[in-house]
Write a protein that binds this DNA or RNA. Sequence first.
DNA 1: ACTCTGCATGGTC
DNA 2: TGACCATGCAGAG
Length: 819
Amino acid sequence: MSTKLCFNSKCKEPSDKWRRGWRRRTGEYAHLCDRCASVYEDEKFCETFHLKSSGWRCCESCGKQIHCGCIVSFHMFVLLDAGGIECLTCAKGCILTPNPAWPPPLHFLPSQPERMKDLSAKSWSPIVGSGPVPWRQAPSLFNGSDVPSNMKLRMPVEADVSSGIDRYRICERLSTASPEMKQGSSFERLVNGNMRHGLFEKPQNGNTGLNVKEKRYSFVNNFKPVFPKNDSSSANLKLATVSSSKTETGNEHICGLLPPSSAISIPVAQKVCSRNGMDLSGDTHMRNGKGRGDGRVRDQLLLRYRPQIVGEEFQQISSDSKTVITPLFEKMLSASDAGRIGRLVLPKKCAEAYFPLITQPEGLPLSILDVKGNEWMFQFRFWPNNNSRMYVLEGITPCIQSMQLQAGDVVTFSRLEPEGKLVMGGRKALAIPSSDQGAEISIVGNNTFPPGDGSGRYNSVDVISVNGHEKVAEKILEDKPTIHNKRKNSNFSAKSKRLRIDDGDMIELKITWKEAQGLMRPPAKIVPSFVVVEGCEFEEFEEAEPVIGRPTIPGVDNFGEKIQWIQCEDCFKWRKVPADALLPSRWICSENEWDLDRSLCSSAEELTKEQLEHMLPTMNKDSSINEITELDGDLAVALEGLDALANLAIQGEASSENRTKHPRHKPGCTCIVCIQPPSGKGSKHKQSCDCMVCISLRRRCRTLMESRDRKKMEKQAESSCHNLQSQPKQLRGKVSKSGYLNETNERKSEISPLKGQIDLNIQPEREEDSSPVSDSAPPKMKCSLFPSFSADGVFKQHQKSLGSNVIGNLVGKQMQKDG
DNA sequence: ACTCTGCATGGTC
DNA sequence: TGACCATGCAGAG
């Protein structure tokens, strides 16, 4: 056996003989040296090695310190439903649930020291774990297949009546399924001698013929029921004699006083069965020993609501190191949820698992904190729906608004431990900039989605919004690519819907016209023809499609030859390259084939500082550039795969600031392009504008289009037959995919009454506006190696690939197509 | 005419 | 096929 180091990082003693320690997340066991293994088996591992680590908590019963959140000792405690923990010894005899702290895969089940095994074998279902995590994952709801459904519990909820009345700490450690739990003695042991109350209720109205319905409650005995004064439902106050009763299943309960509509009664479990055995309660618990429905399917559904481990949003309310936040579930806001109605449809399973039991449709008020610590009161209720229930939180509008959430964003529900308070958080969806923001660039890719998913879940990888750049990179780093099953695309807002991407590789590129101008470059060795419109000179490239390349700064070298300056992606030094060099979107010194002396980043910059300043007059002065630089930095990681275009666009803007508005006009040029106001500003030309510029442009565009049409027809006639036969099938498929929008636009442009006209104020980003103007916007930019003076418009292009040349080609193709 | 409420419907899995 | 859930819609206020 080879010599190994002890797995214990504090030890690392080499040994060729090792013993098995805890099971790691990988499923393997930690290999410990003799000494560490002994310590581990004596349950003193954390005491010995992790004493200075955080995460120590006291057993609520005996006060024993346990290192929670550590994979080594996670089997040594249970989470109390009312918050806090209890060591396994104290919990022995009344344990009914696996430690919910670490859910998933069964194979993560760590081994336990021998002395613990019999205990756990008798009183625990398999403890599952995925290792120490700073946040407690929600319990078994999301991994039902791993844990017997009869071990699933409704999670504890501590609810307040917001007016400062006593808090009712509710413990719900009973389970209908656990035999141990059905013993009154165990039950009464639950909360350290506190008196507990239980209730066995009558069947719900309307559910005549119900076989069984049981609710159990457990309260601490300092329970002081104070009912809302204006509780209209108080007439329905359920008073149950404080007495012991036995359920039909033989469970013994102590019944207590239950205010029905205050946020205080937290059920342990309920079961409502109709005559035919249908579970009307929506109970998450077992039926005939099995979970309802297909466990696998259910798990998949629930996957949608699995909370992501995001913690920073709760920092404000969890500054106390002892506070642990248990993410419960999350949900993307649908249009309905975020609408004015103020109703948030709650996932049924989640609502039943984590929210208080409600038996009446009116439900009960629920106090939920937001991440800032503000307390919100919602009405948690349900509607009967297809023999089931539909749970909603009512009155969420103010809260949603305060969190500035909208459809597509995600609301998260968590629980603060040990307080047990529900906490509602929000996560912005890195939404597409609204149309009035003058979106600079937005790249949407759904490459993290499973095929056909079409999920509207906004993952930070999915949407990159440069306007919201301050969060972009951060988000991308923070959010792991996740796959969520979304059943409906309808979870999109109207704006989101347009971002649905049918093809897995399709991305959407939106850049402003101005940027597009900056990015477009004449094809190599192609001399543009010049068109004069209203005294202004425009370049046209009729013989070849323009391409998109890295923005450079044109200049003249000492010999009077035209050159261009390009900045190295890595060292940011400016290098001189020939004027006709077409450079990739990411260019670094090592690609400087023209000047080998400066083909290393370590080589000195040719330009002096003064020259550079002269060349980049606004450098270091224009805050927007700084912003862009910062943005660029932010995006550096994020855009690794998508960066080419984004960088292009970003730098395009930066560069455009350094030049004239028209990328190829000289400084000081007063042509209409160069003197145009910044994007989105200034007066706009109306569709019907008949100024000389518009008329000229229309005329010129028309002739241009006609010319292109003619050429296109000729070309097509020549090559169509040959193409159809020789073109590989796959390629044809690709073309069809990348032509997704083209086709759409083509179709739209056919029906557009404005075909052939120029809209100088196109705002393609306002796609919801089904106006033909915006619909046909992208084709309109065809004229566009010429002025971008309708620069408030946004150029949008669906793209199969990110290569800049491909974009150029696509742009060109689209130009042809719409020509 | 508008909002609110409660339920029904239909798409999706 | 059943469950879930987004959303539509009718009726009440």
